[in-house]
């Protein structure tokens, strides 16, 4: 089974003046995404964020975003797995949203973006609750040479929170972008997974991750629709790895993490 751990709802809503080349994007929030997933043999996609790209979304925007994902997950229950978006600056609202979407809803993971560094104390109760609910935290990470956004997490922030919460599973989205540094940061942190989504298809990435972390600590994702499923899949299909290792990265590990 191939599971894409990292996809989003298209931020652009479409306009009647769009050229025909954008037609697909108007036919539905994720229907077209699944058409492309079919062409590449992807069975399930983990979906998060709504159409807002605010760095610091309010609880209302968060709820609206999760409602959009919820609707898509209900429309395609065999294909779409919802990840619950949170802004941990609003701690009580975040814990309540976890109850609404995960404890009492169909969501199977948490998605954190750039609202706050993930090692902030607000994350401690959220990480504990994620462990209780048995869901992973998918945290965006990047190391930008010209400087990150003010509250954009780096791999070292994930390493710090993961050390405080050994029972919680963290997926380090994009592996920091600067992946040679990212993977080396989390070698010792057994509850952190490397993740392949969203960078260029640079040779050597998956091989290095498997060498340092083992094939059971790396998961595949695409960051579609901003990225091509094809370019992102090549990071696994083109890697110098065994077929068993590729199968684990493409889906086996996520099956285990999500308890599918």
């Amino acid at each position: 089974m191939v599971i894409d751990c990292h996809t989003h709802i298209q931020g652009y809503k479409g306009s009647p003046d769009d050229p025909p080349s954008l037609k697909l994007r108007r036919t539905g929030r994720t229907g077209y995404l699944l058409e492309f997933a079919d062409r590449l043999g992807i069975d399930k996609i983990c979906l998060s964020l709504g159409t807002s790209r605010d760095y610091y979304p309010t609880p209302e925007v968060i709820a609206e975003s999760n409602d959009m994902v919820w609707a898509e997950a209900e429309r395609y229950p065999d294909r779409i797995i919802g990840f619950c978006y949170l802004n941990p600056r609003y701690l009580q609202e975040s814990l309540a949203e976890m109850d609404r979407c995960i404890a009492n809803g169909p969501f199977r993971g948490i998605k954190l973006w750039v609202a706050i560094h993930v090692d902030h104390p607000n994350l401690d109760p959220i990480a504990d609750k994620a462990a209780e609910l048995g869901v992973p935290i998918l945290q965006h990470t990047w190391i930008k040479i010209a400087g990150n956004l003010p509250d954009e997490s780096e791999p070292r922030h994930v390493a710090a929170i993961a050390e405080r919460h050994p029972q919680t599973t963290f997926i380090m989205a994009h592996s920091g972008g600067n992946w040679e540094r990212g993977y080396k940061t989390i070698i010792e942190h057994q509850n952190v997974y490397g993740e392949l989504a969203g960078g260029d298809p640079e040779m050597g990435q998956a091989e290095m991750a498997v060498r340092l972390l083992g094939a059971d600590r790396l998961v595949w994702g695409s960051d579609a629709p901003g990225r091509s499923f094809a370019s992102q899949l090549s990071k696994v299909t083109g890697a110098d790895l065994t077929e068993d290792e590729k199968a684990a990265i493409l889906g086996g590990n996520m099956e285990r993490i999500l308890g599918l």
Binding site: R39, M203, S231, S234
Partner: peptide, 19 residues
């Protein structure tokens, strides 16, 4: 852009992803 990129990226885009 091989060998900096995996050549599978371009191949999959042209032969599988796109119609």
């Amino acid at each position: 852009h091989a060998p900096y990129y995996y050549p599978e990226s371009a191949i999959l885009k042209v032969t599988r992803e796109c119609e």
